[in-house]
Structure formats: structure tokens, C-alpha cells
Design a protein around this nucleic acid. Structure first.
Length: 893
DNA sequence: GTGACCACGC
DNA sequence: GACGTACGTGGTCACA
């Protein structure tokens, strides 16, 4: 364990005491403005605390001080206000986001065992001035850390001042020599300089018209402010002479204000600031609470995927169930169905855990899965269960012929809805965010990569009981937070039911025509071999076409083609680069085809064949319900949301996706322009709403309005551009992004966007108001109150801020579309059951639902599906669904 | 194992 | 004027 301890004095020689004085307010300010507005899981801002902490850790490591003291300003008025009432007047009020962090900084310093001090009527500077003088007189070595150049006046033989530069990441130490180099003045003359030039940030007037250059020149010439004022007649320049004599008094007062006192009536002694090193145990809970996970390691804490050490864990008492009775199978109960992390399809159940008001129980897998009592309890809707990742539990049990019902709380989903940015699939990680630290992460228990294995049962049983206990303990807290955010309906009526729907879709799986896939694979391999030979022939040498590095060398060095774009590591060989080279060499076309076919072969043929269930020829994807920042689902192992469609060669892959029962059909229903319809609704833009109400082609309509032409005069080029702009609006891309996708200049792209917003003033108004709202609230919401926090929207970093602004505009659109289709899915599943239909919902691809349907239900479904989807959520514009069916997914177009 | 690069979908 | 620009998943290569 790394622990900071005062180092032994070398060779027994006692060196001078070393005192570090920190200007607390100044460093906190710097940190606050340098870092984006981070917050922890409780919504408390922590950026200043974080910056302060990293700085402090570095100071302690670099300086290894024997004494440390952090000085703070106290109150608003100081003795300087008696001299000059407007001292520090006109200063912007400290933002509340910062002031609320000061108590945390104080707590943190206490945790470090570092003395802090503030004194009524005095500023931090004065405390530092007084202590540094005392220390220097005692022959101590002093280093002052601040962001304020004024403190340079304190530099002496023994006292250094270290200034923060550029944010907080860089610092610069000033001793006598460096002050001289920088200003050509002694530290004491800094005050004279200030008297002349003033300081706008403190509202110190100085002499108007005199800036740093003139001030330094005068002080160099005459030695001090007083001597300058005594010798005004020797000053060169009539204007300057006049200014100086007019503002004598003001200059003297300014000097007084800028002078840091060495005589503050402080009640601390140097010895009070003794620093003995910190105890990691004191800091761990603070850091965890603040969410400083990256700093835990630096102070010798755990990173989350190491076992929580035994001392930190309270022992947990639990019972191993020998038989299942009402005491164990009561309600409500937290339930863990333990499966080895990763895929849960056909996964063995490693055991179960239940925590309820009667106690904590570990239940061996065999016992539960073979127990009729357990099945009855699990399937009983009225027995309330609290879980983590309901779908995992649901599917794992479903493979064992148990249909889990009555899930009333899912910790994973709840945490995701409260804040999608710190979601996760690990109980421990989420529990920690909410203050529970005794649960190990999955990786710590199971190991990772090659080392993954199911641990011995004593470890595993305790692990699952701890997880169940975390859920049990956190249920109320998160439920309350959801209610407070008005997200409980989203949670209970949408996402929870959806997880069961998704679970059913996943277990149902999609049938694949393996023979067909293999045949396509063979054909592709032949084509690839032929192409490879031709490419090598044209290049004059055999090389790996899949290696961007080798390909780049061949194209741009051997064949001397012009390198259009570079990447960090070499030449770019991406599609848009190759397309620009297409006319220049016949090898290019072949490489493009090789790339396209190679992708199909490796990702889609081989990739899919790898995950086909050998017994049933079905593919069971997993939908991740708690991952994307917008509320969309994602799909893994395999990803069935990116099966090719645009290019015919790729689209053919879809021919391998077939119904699981002979004679059935694949039916696909996709929302037409759902995001733009949502945008029309949210923005209430008349023009856009009209397009949908009149059922116009929205891209054509956009082209007509943006280019001011009649419908029949819209060229395909215009429509393509309009479509790209609409696309950009929906996905929140920038002018740069648009310029890339249309291969036009950024300026032109910017003009397009501007023209678009002129045409749709309601949209413009929406874009502006949503950004304002995001700045005010810190988050944006969808129609169903899904949230996304955007702390960076107040960042002073242009990039971070712009990105957050585009996100603010885009997330309510994309997220509401996600809400709508999710709602339709829940409703659809209900209707299928209610109508006793055999048809099965198989997949969701963001704006599209895929079903397999018996022939005789096609007609019924063709009516029901659009009806359900179009009425999922009432908008002020109609929703429209396009429907297709066929023998394979390919044919459902 | 990890990061860079590339490519597929919405 | 620079900054480095939708969100995902997954394959391959090349490095350690």
C-alpha cells in the first residue's frame, strides 16, 4: 500500500523545515474554471474539489513538506475595505456551483490531516504573508502555491512562490532570480508596480493609462512608487506626467491595497501546520463519496475490480438453504440468479441468493431449479422481486423452464434512468456509486480473460448474497429518486416491462439458414482470393491488404499516389480517401471491393456462423438496455442492428435470416421519419408539421423550402443535400460533419444549416431554447422524462461545450423516438398475447420491428402492427409505419 | 491484452 | 482562430 510518509532526513543531517502554504481560494478558483463541471452520482459538483485534490497530491509528492497550511479568505469585507470601499467591487459573484464545493474542500483537507486557516477581515494572502515571514525568519524553506501573481511580492531568499499556469496542470516556480528575469524588479517592487498599474480584478484603480510596461519602466528608473511621484518632472512624456500628478493619492492608495501584510493577527503558530502524511483510510470514504475513482489508486485505495479487503468489509451472515420454505420465498425479496458474466443464453445457473425481511439466503442452483416451490414463487406475479438486470435473470431462468414474474425493481435499470452516463452491468460498481462498498465486482470474483473461472462456492455464495443485499438496501432509495425526478412511470411502466419483452425476443432468437450463409461465404472467399491475386499483381508485391500500414506504404510510397489524409500513425486508407484516388490507379477500385467483401466475409458470414446455436440454428443476440446515452438499445454477440442493407452485395446477407417454422414469413415494420416527426412535435414548427400532416416527402419539402423552388424543380442533388441536412439535424452533427458527408466545404455546410434554420424558425427556436434549458438544469429530457446530464455544457472549452450543445439538441429527439418504439414494443407484446396470436417479435433495429408470422396471421398483423406502433405516443403530427413481408428478412423490403 | 483503424447499421 | 466533431459493435493488425 502506498502511503505518504515524511521521508527520513538524509544521512541524519537535519535539514531546515519545509513549509508549503497554499492559497485555497485561488487554487479552487483555478481548478473550477479549468475543469468541466463534473458531478458525482448525487449531482454534487466536484470539479474544483477534484482539481484541488490532484494539485494537492502532486504538491505533497513533489515537495515532501514537513509543514503544510491552506489559507482561505474569510467573509466579504476586509481591512482593505476601510481604505477603499470599492475594493474588489464589481467582481462577479462566486458561482454557486463553486461556493458549494468549499465545504467539501475543507473536509478533504481534514481528511489529509492538513491544517487550514482563515481569519476575519483578512485575506488568504495576508495569512500567507504573515506565516511566510515568520517561517523565513526561522530559516525555514517556504513555497507558496497560488494562481495570483500579486503574491510574487513575498519572494525572498527563503521563500519561493509557485504560480499555476494554464489551468492547473502546469506550474511555474519563482525565486528571486526568476522574478528579476520576468519583471526586472525585486519582489518588493512588484507592489510599487501594482500601485501604478492597478489591478482590475481586485478593482484597484492605479494610475489610469499606465499598464505593466510603463509601470515597470518607471519603477526601474526611480526605484519605488514614492520616488517616482517625487520625481514626476523627470518623467518623459507630457501625458504621463499629467496622469501621474493627477492620480498621486490614488496610486499611493493602490499600493497600500496591493501590499500583503506580514503582521496579520493570526492565531496559528508555525508548529500548528505540521504535516505527518495522510492515512489512506481517512481519505477512502471521502474519495468514494466524491466519485474520485481514478484517484483511489494514487492514495492506495482499490479501483473497484480488486477484491474489497477483508478489513473493509463487515462480515455478512447468511444461511445456506437446505429446502425452500415460506421464510425464504417471501415478498418482497431481492433475488440474484447467478450466471457467469457475459452471455446468459444457455448459461448454467451458478446459484441463487435471496435477501428479504427474514434474512439472507444462499440457494444452491440445483435445489432452486428443481424445486416446484421455487418455480411457483418465481412465476407468481404477486411475489415482488428486486433484481439487478431483470432480463439476465429472466432469460437464465427461462432456459430452465421457469418464467420469472413480479419484478418490481431493477437496480441496473433504475441507475441507468437516473443517470445513463454512469450505468453499468456490475452490481458492485453501481452499489458503490450509491454508497455501498462491501460488494466485489464481477471481474474480481470471476477473473478476466484467460483467467476467468467460476470460483469456489464459498466465495461465490457470499458474493451473490452481498449483491442481493445491496439491491435490497438500495431499492427504496433509488425508487424515491425516480419518483422525485418524475421518472417512476418510465421505470415501472416502460423499461421494466420492456426487459421482459426483450428477454422473450432474445430467447426466441432468429433462425438462420446456415447452408445459405456458408454458400455465400464460399463464394466470397473465392472472389476475395481472386481479387487478392490481382491486387498483388498490380502492386508488384504480395502484402496484407487488411493492414492499413502495409496498404498505405504500397499506395503512397510504392505507387506514389497522393496521400490525401494522414492519421496519427501514418497514411489514412479510409473509403473517402480511396474514393478520391479512384481514377488514378486501377488498383484502387479493386481494393475498395476487397474491403467491402472482406467485411462481409469476416464480420457477417464468419461472425454470424460463430454465434449460431448448433442445436437449433438460431441466433440469440442480447439487447443492452442500460447502455446508450440516448435511450436507444444496443445489440451484442452478435450485433443484429447493423446487418448490411445499403449495398446489394451486403443486403443479401439478410437472405440467411429466415422464419423458424416452415411456411411462416418475416414481417418488418419501420417508422417513417420518426425523428423528424418527433422534432416537428417538440419544436411545433409550422412548416415542418405541415410537411407531415400533408404526408409530403420530407426531404423534397426541405429542398423546396431551403432552395426556394417548386416541387417539380427539385433536383436529385437538391434532395440529396436536403436529406443530409435533415440527417444532420437528427443526429446532431456539426457543419464539419455535414461537410464531410456531402463532400462540400465547411463554409457551404454552415450556410446550408443556416438556411435550413431560417426556413424552419420553430426548429431554430427549439434548438436555442433547449440549450438554454440544458444550461439551466444541467440535463435534457425526452417526452417520457428520460434524462441525459450534460455537465460540459457550461465548459469553457469550446469543443466540449459545442459537443454538449449539439447533444442537448439531439438527445430529446433521438431519445423520444426511442421512448416511442419501446412503448410500442411493450404494447405489441401485450396485444399479441391478448389476441392469442402465434406471431413472434424477434428484433428491434432502432426504428424498425421484425416479426416472424404464420401465413394466416399476415393479414391481421398488417393491420395490428401499424396501429399499435402509430398510436404508441400521441404526437401533434401523425406517426407513419411502413410494412413489408417476405420469405426472408431480405424479402421483407 | 490494448489501441488504432476501418466499416456496418440507425 | 483553434479545437475535432452522432452512437453503437466488431473485425483485423500491430504493438506490448
Amino acid at each position: 500500500m502506498v502511503q505518504y510518509k515524511q521521508k527520513n532526513r538524509s544521512g541524519g543531517i537535519i535539514l531546515a523545515n519545509k513549509l508549503v502554504l497554499i492559497d485555497g481560494n485561488s487554487i479552487a478558483y483555478r481548478a473550477f474554471f479549468a475543469l468541466p463541471l463534473l458531478n458525482n452520482d448525487k449531482g454534487v459538483y466536484t470539479n474544483a474539489v477534484y482539481g484541488f485534490t490532484t494539485m494537492l497530491l502532486r504538491i505533497l509528492e513533489d515537495e515532501k513538506p514537513s509543514h503544510v497550511l491552506v489559507a482561505f479568505d474569510a467573509g466579504k469585507t476586509t481591512f482593505r475595505h476601510k481604505t477603499f470601499e470599492e475594493y474588489k467591487g464589481g467582481r462577479q459573484k462566486t458561482p454557486s456551483e463553486l461556493s458549494e464545493q468549499f465545504p467539501l474542500i475543507r473536509q478533504l483537507l481534514d481528511g489529509f490531516g492538513i491544517k487550514r486557516y482563515e481569519l476575519e477581515s483578512y485575506e488568504a494572502d495576508d495569512i500567507i504573508g504573515t506565516l511566510s515571514k515568520q517561517a523565513a525568519e526561522g530559516d525555514w524553506v517556504v513555497n507558496v502555491y497560488t494562481g495570483d501573481k500579486d503574491l510574487l511580492q513575498l519572494v525572498t531568499e527563503n521563500v519561493k512562490v509557485t504560480l499555476t499556469r494554464k489551468g492547473i496542470s502546469e506550474v511555474e516556480a519563482y525565486d528571486l532570480k526568476q522574478v528579476e528575469e520576468r519583471y526586472g524588479l525585486t519582489p518588493h517592487q512588484i507592489i510599487d508596480m501594482k500601485g501604478l498599474m492597478g489591478d482590475p480584478s481586485d478593482n484597484i484603480p492605479g494610475v489610469p493609462g499606465v499598464g505593466e510596461k510603463t509601470a515597470i519602466k518607471l519603477i526601474k528608473q526611480f526605484g519605488s512608487l514614492e520616488q517616482t511621484l517625487d520625481s514626476i518632472d523627470q518623467v518623459s512624456g507630457a501625458k504621463l506626467k499629467e496622469k501621474l500628478s493627477e492620480n498621486k493619492e490614488q496610486a499611493l492608495m493602490s499600493k497600500e491595497l496591493a501590499t500583503i501584510t506580514h503582521e496579520a493577527p493570526i492565531e496559528v503558530s508555525l508548529e500548528d501546520s505540521v504535516y505527518k502524511g495522510y492515512e489512506p483510510e481517512q481519505l477512502l470514504p471521502l474519495f468514494k463519496d466524491l466519485g474520485f475513482n481514478s484517484l483511489l489508486e494514487r492514495i492506495g485505495g482499490d479501483t473497484g475490480q480488486e477484491m474489497v479487503s477483508e478489513e473493509e468489509k463487515e462480515t455478512i451472515e447468511f444461511e445456506e438453504a437446505k429446502a425452500l420454505n415460506d421464510k425464504i420465498l417471501s415478498s418482497p425479496a431481492a433475488l440474484i440468479v447467478e450466471t457467469t458474466p457475459e452471455t446468459y443464453h444457455r448459461a448454467p445457473v451458478n446459484g441463487l441468493a435471496i435477501v428479504n425481511e427474514n434474512g439472507k439466503f444462499y440457494i444452491p442452483g440445483d435445489l432452486a431449479l428443481s424445486s416446484p416451490e421455487f418455480k411457483k414463487w418465481a412465476e407468481d406475479e404477486s411475489k415482488e422481486k428486486y433484481v439487478f438486470d431483470a432480463k439476465r435473470a429472466y432469460v437464465a431462468l427461462d432456459w430452465n423452464d421457469i418464467s420469472l414474474q413480479g419484478v418490481k425493481f431493477d437496480l441496473m435499470i433504475a441507475s441507468y434512468l437516473l443517470n445513463p452516463s454512469d450505468s453499468g452491468d456490475d452490481v458492485a460498481v453501481i452499489a458503490k456509486r450509491y454508497g455501498i462498498h462491501d460488494t466485489d465486482g464481477e471481474e474480481a470474483v470471476y477473473g478476466k480473460g484467460a483467467k476467468r473461472k467460476v470460483p469456489e462456492i464459498s466465495v461465490l455464495s457470499e458474493h451473490m448474497v452481498r449483491k442481493a443485499n445491496s439491491i435490497y438496501v438500495l431499492q427504496e432509495k433509488l425508487t424515491n429518486e425516480l419518483k422525485k425526478n418524475e421518472q417512476y412511470e418510465l421505470f415501472a411502466d416502460l423499461e421494466l416491462p420492456l426487459s421482459l419483452v426483450l428477454g422473450e425476443m432474445e430467447t426466441t432468437g432468429v433462425k438462420v439458414d446456415v447452408g445459405r450463409l456458408q454458400a455465400m461465404g464460399r463464394e466470397l472467399t473465392e472472389q476475395l482470393n481472386a481479387l487478392e491475386a490481382e491486387i498483388h499483381e498490380l502492386a508488384g508485391v504480395a502484402f496484407n491488404i487488411n493492414s492499413p500500414k502495409q496498404l498505405g506504404e504500397i499506395l503512397f510510397e510504392k505507387l506514389n499516389l497522393p496521400p490525401i489524409k494522414k492519421t496519427k500513425t501514418g497514411y489514412s486508407t479510409s473509403v473517402d480517401v480511396l474514393e478520391k484516388l479512384e481514377g488514378k490507379h486501377e488498383i484502387i477500385r479493386k481494393i475498395l471491393v476487397y474491403r467491402q467483401l472482406g467485411k462481409l466475409s469476416s464480420t457477417y458470414i464468419e461472425g454470424l456462423l460463430k454465434v449460431v446455436d448448433q442445436q437449433t440454428d438460431k441466433i440469440h443476440t442480447r439487447f443492452n438496455q442500460a447502455l446508450t446515452q440516448t435511450g436507444r438499445l444496443s445489440s451484442t454477440e452478435p450485433n443484429l442492428q447493423n446487418i448490411p442493407i445499403r449495398l446489394e452485395a451486403g443486403r443479401k446477407i439478410r437472405q440467411a435470416f429466415v422464419p423458424s417454422t416452415p411456411g411462416w414469413k418475416i414481417l418488418s415494420a419501420d417508422y417513417s421519419q420518426i425523428e423528424l416527426r418527433v422534432l416537428a412535435h417538440i419544436s411545433q414548427d409550422d412548416n415542418l408539421m405541415e410537411a407531415f400532416k400533408k404526408e409530403m416527402d420530407v426531404h423534397t419539402k426541405t429542398a423546396m423550402d431551403v432552395f426556394h423552388v417548386e416541387m417539380e424543380d427539385v433536383t436529385s442533388q437538391m434532395r440529396r443535400h436536403a436529406k443530409a441536412v435533415n440527417f444532420g439535424i437528427v443526429y446532431g452533427i456539426s457543419d464539419y460533419g455535414l461537410s464531410q458527408s456531402l463532400n462540400i466545404t465547411r463554409k457551404e455546410a454552415g450556410e446550408f444549416i443556416e438556411q435550413y434554420l431560417k426556413t424552419f424558425p420553430g426548429v431554430k427556436e427549439y434548438m436555442e431554447s433547449i440549450v438554454r434549458q440544458a444550461k439551466q438544469d444541467g440535463y435534457v429530457s425526452t417526452l417520457m422524462n428520460r434524462r441525459r446530464y450534460l455537465p460540459e455544457i457550461t465548459s469553457r472549452n469550446f469543443n466540449l461545450r459545442s459537443f454538449a450543445e449539439r447533444t442537448a439538441m439531439n438527445t430529446p429527439i433521438q431519445g423520444t423516438a426511442a421512448d416511442i418504439i419501446k412503448k410500442a414494443m411493450v404494447e405489441m407484446e401485450r396485444v399479441l398475447k391478448e389476441e392469442k396470436l402465434e406471431a413472434l417479435m424477434l428484433l428491434q433495429v432502432h426504428d424498425e420491428l421484425i416479426f416472424e408470422v404464420p401465413e394466416h396471421e399476415i393479414e391481421k398483423l398488417s393491420q395490428l402492427v401499424p396501429q399499435v406502433m402509430e398510436s404508441a405516443l400521441g404526437l401533434d403530427v401523425p406517426l407513419k409505419v411502413d410494412l413489408n413481408h417476405g420469405d426472408t428478412w431480405y424479402d421483407a423490403k
